[in-house]
């Protein structure tokens, strides 16, 4: 459970940014816009869920690993799930196979401007 600090998404991952600003928001009519966008650094495909052969094989592989872990432990231990949590993220296999997505996820926004004052705010109305 992570709750981002109030006052800005300063530490959200790049994948979150991509999901948001490449997928959501208003779009200018095609005729009116100038085309100069190249998403040069982004493996945008990485954010799309695809039911691919790779996904299936990866799940199957994870299942077979899961089995080995379960066998190493006595059956009575099966209820004790807690100590194992978190380890799976470090399995080289998973890291390799989901590399791009995980890298994007791990990419941190630089918080350099987090402390600065609001850049866009309401003007004081002198006439009020």
């Amino acid at each position: 459970m992570t709750v981002q600090p109030a006052g800005g998404p300063a530490s959200s991952g790049l994948a979150d940014v991509i999901d948001t600003i490449l997928d959501k928001g208003l779009v200018i009519d095609a005729y009116a816009r100038v085309s100069l966008i190249g998403i040069e650094v982004l493996a945008v495909e990485a954010r799309v869920v695809v039911s691919s052969v790779d996904t299936y094989l990866r799940f199957a592989e994870a299942m077979s690993h899961l089995e080995e872990e379960m066998e190493e432990r006595a059956p009575a231990e099966q209820v004790e799930r807690e100590p194992l949590r978190g380890e799976i993220e470090r399995e080289p296999q998973e890291r390799e196979l989901t590399g791009t997505a995980e890298e994007l996820q791990a990419e941190e926004l630089r918080p350099e401007q987090a402390e600065e004052r609001a850049r866009v705010r309401r003007r004081r109305r002198e006439e009020d």
């Binding site: 940014v17 997928d23 959501k24 928001g25 705010r121």
Partner: peptide, 27 residues
């Protein structure tokens, strides 16, 4: 990408804003 989102999110904390998808350029 970060500049785009940061500006909009910071703005939204102060005033209403209709965010554009990344890449809106006009002449």
């Amino acid at each position: 990408l970060r500049t785009h989102q940061r500006l909009l999110d910071e703005t939204a904390a102060e005033v209403p804003v209709l965010p554009f998808r990344f890449g809106a350029v006009m002449t």
